[in-house]
Design a protein around this nucleic acid. Structure first.
Lengths: 331, 331
DNA sequence: ATGAAAGCGCTAACAT
DNA sequence: ATGTTAGCGCTTTCAT
């Protein structure tokens, strides 16, 4: 590997001069010297050793993202949004899949800190006490899943969420407005805030229209396809249901499959609304009505906020994004 | 940030001693000293500065992966497989989305080299001359898309692919065995090897059974949902088709949607086989028959091979994986 | 317009 | 059993 020092020797200048030229701080460097250096750099295919640079500069221009699973479309979109925004700002992204586990999350936080990332973007595990994983000094953005953070938080923490309550309220109201009378919910369980809020929004909408909230119209498990499938099978065992709010689109996919197996058709027998608007939702049969989360924007905002935190800029450390009802053919 | 040197001072020992203890090279360190050091490390929450360590050790224990798009389910599975395997081996993964562009691929390779990654796993852009992006000295695994590499390759390059020809041969034969007489193909265009091979397998299967290959039964565009959708609309405009081989599952998803709009039912009117077996395929309506690529295994093998390359071990630098026909309800 | 020198935090060979 | 020391490749201040 050719080093800056070697370039310097070849050009008969000092490494300071080469450094200046390479980094464009060459106001006071003569054109001749600059050209000589640049030519050698080019010819030798010199590449800066970013590690040495980082050690000196005390930054790495890399951030870590910890999400449950890139294979989950919601998170792959998020990861993409983050990576795109990061790249534009000159940052590089280390990807970590926590599998929703506190233990893995902790381990990755430690690894990322050892790698001296400039910041971390973190979607906490569904069931997680933030105090148990707090990333000390590293600037961190909490994404998508709200979590209780002590107010006298010493570290630099930003938070970006979606208004889940309002979103599920919209979803349920939409079902109601389409004439559904018996609306069930399939979602994640009550151990995480977003899920709690989505259940809340669902109940609020029902109550506001004078319906009673019926606990045997709830199937609360996890944010995945199986939950949707099992939820429908279990909910529809003995009771009638004409509307279904799914806590996310993955659940809706499973629900759709189960409904098909039960020979129930959507939307005539049962209307369905999902949550997230993953890329695939429009290609389901029928295309899914859903509550769109501005995932890509979340990624962008997260990077924006994180970089502000890194640079010690004063910013609003809580952003709550609104959702949007996307009406397709499942309602 | 507390450094190793500071720990040493607090413990009244040299930094060498602390280093040895921290890295478990403490055979000759007294229990008392070890304990004293470990206690301070614990109490102070010391975290190794991996950058300094990397500079000294000349490795970063991180690898870069460059894929077209994590939002593409095939690649998110791949990324997951790679990350899982990497994590087990103590490596961390930098994620880069090339958008299938040579320019972005090049840029990322350079960035990764500056970050001194120990290796790169690369899925080249669909239309790409490898010589234009060759990552010089960094050990690299070429994944999923074969590419012409000069034989007197100086750098350390490994290649892992799937037997595309055999896979699409299987797919087409399956369609034939199900009684299809007029089988079309929708796939990516002929500018990349895997696509070429999949077309080849399709044609071979047809010819082997005495059918003629008909160029108006081909719609070759790109590996995405739109291609599937447009392909069906275009292919079925004026001619009958009872079997459809899709170059990947994304294409099949688009095709399914278009078929639904044309009131054609699958599998009774048209039978469909996809390629990849992304996680979602079994949840489509109908669940998709497809050629399973061992994506997760590819990720694992890639890491295995890359680490061997990194450690200068002698290995087989070309692995071709076989596919598997997964029969579901679309045929 | 250019260079000398110190130092970022760590490891390891060598000395004691 | 522990310490001394040099050095990884870079940036930057201060001299010249």
């Amino acid at each position: 590997m050719i080093t800056l020092k070697e370039i310097a020797k070849m050009a008969n200048v000092s490494s300071a001069t080469v450094s200046k030229v390479i980094n464009g701080k060459d106001k006071y460097i003569s054109d001749a010297t600059r050209k000589k250096i640049l030519d050698i750099v080019e010819k030798e295919g010199y590449i800066t050793n970013g590690i040495a640079k980082s050690l000196k500069m005390k930054n790495t221009k890399t951030i870590g993202i910890i999400i449950p699973d890139v294979m989950n479309l919601f998170f792959s979109e998020l990861a993409r949004g983050i990576e795109d925004a990061a790249e534009k700002k000159g940052y590089t992204v280390i990807l970590c899949n926590s599998e929703n586990k506190v233990s893995k999350t902790k381990k990755y936080i430690e690894i990322l800190q050892e790698k001296m990332v400039d910041g971390i973007i973190l979607t906490p595990p569904e069931k997680c006490d933030f105090n148990s994983i707090r990333p000390g000094r590293t600037p961190t953005i909490l994404l998508d899943r709200d979590v209780d953070v002590e107010t006298n938080e010493p570290s630099k923490i930003g938070r970006i969420f979606v208004n889940n309550t309002a979103g599920s309220y919209k979803a349920t109201s939409h079902l109601l407005s389409k004439g559904c009378k018996e609306i069930a919910i399939i979602s994640s369980d009550t151990q995480n805030k977003p899920s709690l809020e989505r259940i809340q929004g669902y109940e609020n909408a029902l109550r506001d229209k004078g319906y009673v909230v019926n606990s045997d119209r709830k199937y609360l498990e996890s944010y995945n396809i199986e939950t949707g499938y099992n939820g429908v099978k279990s909910l529809l065992m003995d009771k009638r249901i004409d509307g279904l709010f799914c806590g996310n689109d993955l659940i809706a996919i499973g629900a759709l499959k189960a409904l098909r197996e039960l020979n129930l058709s959507v939307p005539s027998d049962v209307k369905i609304v999902g949550f997230d608007d993953i890329l695939l939702s429009r290609y389901l049969d029928p295309p899914l009505t859903t509550i769109k989360q501005p995932v890509y924007v979340m990624g962008e905002k997260a990077i924006e906020m994180l970089i502000a935190l890194i640079n010690d800029e004063q910013i609003d450390d809580l952003i709550i994004l609104e959702t949007l009802l996307i009406e397709r053919d499942s309602t």
